[in-house]
């Protein structure tokens, strides 16, 4: 049972990791906690669902369209709402994302109603591989793990080695200075939001396959992803992914051996304890702000 609990924990942790990655990308450039993250992803999943079942497109086509939609949606929200904020403070921006979350949630439930839907996916969650000792992992879990790790590495390289990635980091450290250095901060922000939205959409496709598709799909994963990101340190990509895995495993072990009832909240207790020791998460450097 121990082996299976850990394996399942890592599998579910991979979905948390994806959501955490999405949050970290935005936080890294603009220090905004994006509460609309989950519902942006949920909307993209609905778009994929519509392409698949209403218009009968193939998987490749549908998912590509949905990811393109996700990118456009992220970029649009940044351009149309966040950038318009006059003299923004961080709290105000958070409230804007909360407002956006409600709008997206409302639009999705208005368009598709509240009945649960089945989300078709080319990889099955029931085809399992034996890992020995009766421990199994499904193909879908493997795909999720692969996607999470691949995206993490890709994003890491992107931020480290590309010009745009470095520009994004510069934007976070000092917007004014970045602008003076010739970085088009507006464009960078749009790009960040688009990228983050795409990562979130990937998470939503994978989550909707084991779950059922409805407008409430992403609320819990978003909170979990948020926790994972905080655990990992909010600005660290590797930290976000590891945070996701740690969260998944801790939850499952707690649920398996201590109490299923408190499984949903144990994560938060662990996080508060860890944060007391390391206030900026496990994998991020702690900056003390200048006065």
């Amino acid at each position: 049972m121990l082996g299976q609990l850990i394996t399942s924990g890592i599998a579910i942790g991979a979905t948390y990791a994806l959501m955490a990655l999405a949050m970290v990308i935005i936080y890294k450039t603009s220090e905004v906690l994006n509460f609309a993250q989950g519902d942006m992803a949920m909307l993209s999943a609905f778009v994929a669902y519509m392409c698949l079942s209403t218009y009968g497109l193939g998987f490749a086509m549908s998912f590509t369209l949905a990811l393109a939609f996700a990118f456009a949606l992220g970029a649009f929200l940044e351009f149309a709402f966040l950038r318009r904020a006059k003299e923004p403070n961080v709290l105000g921006l958070i409230i804007i994302t909360l407002g956006l979350e409600m709008m997206l949630y409302g639009l999705a439930s208005w368009r598709w109603g509240s009945d649960q839907k089945d989300f078709p996916f080319p990889v099955s969650d029931f085809e399992v591989h034996q890992l020995g000792g009766g421990v199994v992992i499904s193909e879908l879990n493997l795909v999720t793990l692969g996607v999470a790790c691949a995206l993490m590495i890709l994003l890491f390289m992107f931020f480290r080695y590309t010009k745009v990635g470095v520009a994004m980091k510069a934007t976070q450290q000092n917007q004014q200075a970045a602008r003076l250095m010739g970085i088009r901060v507006g464009r960078i922000m749009m790009l960040t939001w688009g990228m983050s939205s795409v990562v979130g959409a990937c998470a939503a496709f994978l989550i909707a396959t084991t779950d059922t598709l409805d407008p409430n799909l992403m609320w819990t994963p978003q909170l979990k992803g948020f926790s994972a990101a905080v655990l990992g340190g909010m600005t660290s990509l590797v930290g976000a992914v590891l945070g996701g895995f740690i969260l998944g495993v801790v939850e499952n072990l707690f649920g398996g051996y201590v109490s299923v009832e408190f499984k949903a909240v144990v994560a938060f207790a662990v996080i508060v304890l860890i944060l007391c020791v390391k206030p900026s998460g496990l994998f991020a450097k702690h900056y003390v702000r200048k006065v």
Binding site: M1, Q4, S8, L223, E251, N252, G256, E261, K263
Partner: peptide, 20 residues
């Protein structure tokens, strides 16, 4: 007897409990 919370989405440990 295995309870599930409303917000829960990962039920592996629940199933393992019943299986065990």
């Amino acid at each position: 007897d295995v309870p599930v919370e409303v917000g829960e989405t990962d039920l592996a440990s629940h199933v393992l409990k019943m299986k065990k």
